[in-house]
Design a protein around this nucleic acid. Sequence first.
DNA 1: CCGATCTTTAAGTATAGAATGAAATCATTC
DNA 2: GAATGATTTCATTCTATACTTAAAGATCGG
Lengths: 177, 177
Amino acid sequence: MALEQEKLVAIENQFIMEWGRMSSSWGINRTMAQIHALLLVTGDAYSMDEIIDRLGISRGNASMSLRDLMEWGVVQRFRRPGDRKDTYMADDDMWSMFAKVIRERKRRELDPTKSAIKEILGHLPAQGEAPESDLVRNRFEGLVGIFEVIDLIYENAFKNDDQLRSAIDFIRDNAKR
Amino acid sequence: MALEQEKLVAIENQFIMEWGRMSSSWGINRTMAQIHALLLVTGDAYSMDEIIDRLGISRGNASMSLRDLMEWGVVQRFRRPGDRKDTYMADDDMWSMFAKVIRERKRRELDPTKSAIKEILGHLPAQGEAPESDLVRNRFEGLVGIFEVIDLIYENAFKNDDQLRSAIDFIRDNAKR
DNA sequence: CCGATCTTTAAGTATAGAATGAAATCATTC
DNA sequence: GAATGATTTCATTCTATACTTAAAGATCGG
């Protein structure tokens, strides 16, 4: 039994490492991903100290990463009455978690670029006014088009959990045919 | 006219910087994104020297980044007969470019993690065999489910350019209703 | 409100990944 | 096939960002 438990922890850790590795290649902070992986895969509530011990990270790092995870809405903080320590828990719905991450990253790292491109586009001479910039204008507009479609997908799939679920069902059904 | 040209270059540069900034927050090398942005938005063919001058980067960096962009299939190399220098050009179809980037990143940074998770899952005791690991197993399976749906989306939208186009049309039509 | 316990902040440090530059390789022309 | 010019490679250097540490700041039970 103790041995089994050890083996399970080893497997969990393997996953935590892999999740951290992948996430950091997508621009998500490694520690954040590792904490999230831990809470996600075990489904337990952990205190900050437990997280620190398990992942071998510093208190400051744990604190900042947990704050970010809470801001993203994928981790919640609890405190039992009469207790001093906070405990942290992940959403137990993988899809909801997935949708939240998508939403948050879009909001933080796609929308500002869309605005920037539109702003830059606004400084170009109007269509037909200056022939040498028309090609560039076209290309900018093509890019804006991509952002518009991303918005469309977002509105239709990631806006809330219900939409995500029905979008997935739809894709699944479509794929069967 | 010369002034106009200067202004246009300034606008292009602004975009190149923004594109580099955004891309690096998504785990894409900044120089790669900047070169791509330059070729993409101007639509011109550039020699390596022109790229080096325009972006102020080193020869080695330019060479490696261009190789990667070619591997991703979003930049092509040409040489005019009787010429010594290679010239580089981006795909002039924004959507095709977009699809290629998605494909490449999935193949390199999502598929290996999917395999790793399945591999790890294989080491867990079978369902019902060890009660303490059943919850963890469930959660792993939830994650695998996410990867399966990503595959499904990929098969139905990013497998080739035609599919991407019809997927977008479909989303657009759906959104109208 | 005091003291204990937990959390955050901010300044300094470490580290992974990106960029450089010079030597090696490759290609083209004469 | 030598000379010239272009490109690639890779060991080294640099830099952005993640992480640590220690001190300040909250919060809560008593």
